[in-house]
Design a protein around this nucleic acid. Structure first.
Lengths: 178, 178
DNA sequence: GCAATTAATGACCAATCGGTCCATATATCA
DNA sequence: TGATATATGGACCGATTGGTCATTAATTGC
């Protein structure tokens, strides 16, 4: 997964994968079918990790606003400095393979939808608790937040400082949280 | 430019470029040096086009809020349906080559910075005209908007409907415009 | 301990990659 | 027109691509 993550699909060659998996050519093909199969598995794992993390951050048993702050803090962490440079397997894949591979499309679309739903739920709970700014609608705000964090990952490629990223997130949050 | 745009750098092979340019192999190398040189030129053109468009949309002689709406409407257009599928050469390049090619980094970083400045200027003018919501600070709001529109391009890969994209943009604008 | 089966290996393959180079047109000037 | 300079074309190159397969090693069942 890490190899695809830091290089992208096309830029990752078989030797890279062999080294990363400690497998020989034949074994790799016996186990995963082909390069695409291995990539799809890596993508699945990346998505599962991400969704699990979001579930923890936005745990319904916790305070929704604190959860949203933790969720965004994670993105600040992952999009500043050296972490930002590493990028995001999902965004990179969306841009590189999106619209060209149906299996990839399914996964990308599913991830965005799942994340949007989780964020919308957290926002709904925040709204019920009276912690949202006046007029904020959870569903559209969730879509907006998803766009924002994915944009953070793109801009993160330019190595913004942590404080810059954090300030940007704060400026957003301030508009939505009472 | 169009070939790189719709396929990405690595996925674009020499034959694709020869067909797109109507040049022979030798002529192409005489004119551009190598594949990377041609790509850099294409990227420069893409960036110049984008910045010019923004300058028109956010023309200081026009109403700043109307300009911002036009600016975002352009992104709605480019990120919904089939247009969204085409993606964005800049975002795709940032994810594919960002952090690996200094010349690419310079261009990507410069573009984001330039766009941020232009948006910040428009926001400043809007604020001076009393058209911004209370407490909105142009500089951080501009960074936020840049992240948002780049995120739109990523999510646009999943073919959202025009009305969905528009509603998301409206939800954002509503928080910042009085 | 031996035979049968499974798993791992790396030599090997055709195709394609980006890039070079020379032979041939085409244009320029005397 | 003839000589020279420039621009074009595509055959060719070694390296690398993703993928296969016969051989070898390890494991399993008896």
């Amino acid at each position: 997964m890490n190899v695809f993550w830091s290089r992208g699909y096309h830029a990752t060659a078989l030797p890279d994968l062999l080294q990363a998996t400690n497998l020989s050519r034949g074994s790799l093909y016996a186990a995963f079918g082909d390069k695409r199969g291995l990539f799809l598995r890596a993508l699945d794992r990346y998505i599962a990790d991400a969704l699990l993390r979001i579930d923890i951050e936005l745990d319904p048993r916790g305070a929704p606003v604190a959860g949203l702050r933790a969720y965004l803090a994670g993105y600040v962490d992952r999009t500043s400095g050296a972490n930002g440079r590493r990028g995001c397997l999902l965004v990179a894949t969306a841009m590189e393979l999106g619209g060209r591979d149906p299996e990839v499309d399914r996964r990308i679309g599913g991830f965005f939808k799942a994340m949007e739903t989780k964020v919308a739920n957290a926002l709904s709970r925040a709204k019920a608790a009276g912690e949202l700014a006046h007029g904020v609608e959870p569903a559209s705000a969730a879509r907006l937040l998803v766009c924002f964090v994915e944009g953070l990952r793109v801009v993160g490629k330019t190595r913004p400082t942590r404080s810059t990223s954090q300030a940007t997130v704060d400026a957003l949050l301030e508009r939505f949280i009472r």
